[in-house]
Computed example of a mutant assay.
Amino acid sequence: MSRTGLGRAGEAHAARFLEAQGYVLLARNWRVREGELDIVAREGDTLAFVEVKSLRTRNYGTGEERVDARKRQRLALLAERFLAAHPDLAYRQCRFDVVVIDYTHRPAQIRLYRNAFDLNG
Rank of each mutant, 00 (worst) to 15 (best):
R8C: 06
E34R: 06
R66D: 08
N120A: 15
A108M: 10
Q93Y: 11
D45F: 10
L78F: 02
R16M: 09
G35R: 01
A41P: 00
R95H: 09
K71C: 12
L37Y: 06
A116F: 05
A69R: 14
F82D: 05
D118A: 14
D38I: 08
G7V: 04
R92A: 10
L75F: 04
G61V: 03
R74W: 02
H86N: 08
L119P: 08
R95A: 02
T62D: 01
G121K: 13
R81L: 08
V100M: 15
Q109I: 03
L77M: 13
F49Q: 00
P107G: 11
G22V: 09
F96A: 09
A27E: 03
L119H: 12
V24N: 14
L112F: 10
R58Y: 11
R31Y: 04
D88Q: 15
R28E: 08
E51C: 07
L25E: 02
R72L: 06
V50D: 00
G44C: 00
R95E: 07
T104W: 13
V24P: 06
R8M: 07
E43T: 02
L25T: 14
L83D: 06
K71W: 05
A84G: 11
R28T: 09
I110E: 11
T104P: 12
C94L: 11
Y103A: 11
C94N: 04
E36N: 04
W30S: 00
L55Y: 04
R28I: 04
L112Y: 09
A85E: 10
R111G: 11
R42D: 02
V52F: 04
G35V: 01
R66I: 05
A27T: 04
G35C: 02
D38R: 01
E19F: 08
C94S: 13
D38P: 03
R81I: 00
H13Q: 10
R114W: 09
L25G: 07
E43C: 08
I110P: 06
L6H: 06
A116Y: 00
R16H: 11
G35L: 01
L18K: 07
L47W: 03
R58F: 05
R95C: 02
D45N: 10
D88Y: 12
A41S: 05
R81K: 15
L75R: 01
N120K: 14
H13P: 04
R92H: 12
G22R: 08
C94A: 14
L18D: 01
E34L: 04
R33Q: 09
L47S: 04
G22H: 09
L55A: 03
A41Y: 00
A12F: 10
T57A: 02
A69P: 03
Y60M: 08
M1Y: 13
I39S: 07
E36I: 00
C94Y: 06
A76E: 09
V100A: 11
M1K: 09
R16V: 06
R74Y: 04
N29M: 05
R111L: 13
W30D: 00
R81G: 00
E80D: 14
R58N: 08
